[in-house]
Amino acid sequence: MSERTEGGGAFAGSVGSTRAALLDACAALLALVGLCDAIYLTVEHLNGTTLQCSITHGCAEVLGSRYATVGGLPLAAFGAAAYFTAFSLATLAAFGYASARRLLTVLVALMFLFSLWLLYLQAFVLHAFCQYCLLSASVTTLLLVVVLVQRFAARRV
């Protein structure tokens, strides 16, 4: 994590690196949205409350299901940790740490795959959708789009 890109990063001044830093900043902002969502879900789970959905109908089913807890901890807490890690990596990448960007790509890919699994559970096992979980899945998908755009853009430059 200590190495910084030679000629890359936010302070190198080239058009390509500025665009890369902007995309990193986008990824950091998206990760913040996901972090807020996950913290909210974690806290409500720990408070023992039943969240009611306002858009979808199924928050209680999804958030009260056995899949919502892993080893006694709310799954959302792991999500919060993942989003915070993604935010940290995106911030470091925006400041020119190339290895952080590589790690961010791997992390976001794993988060996306896990989101697909959670979507599958909601659609085919629980038959209920929770809007907060769908928001998280959307954020992770957008994160994947951002890191992929960045990778392809970096190849072209």
Binding site: V43, E44, L46, Q52, F87, L92, Y97
Partner: peptide, 29 residues
Amino acid sequence: PVLIIAVVLLVALGGGALLMRSPSSDVKP
């Protein structure tokens, strides 16, 4: 960057702790 990350961590933990104390208006048991 380390400062930004530290601030976000503190805000996240502080915000979570505040939410833990206040009962949610969203809840309708």
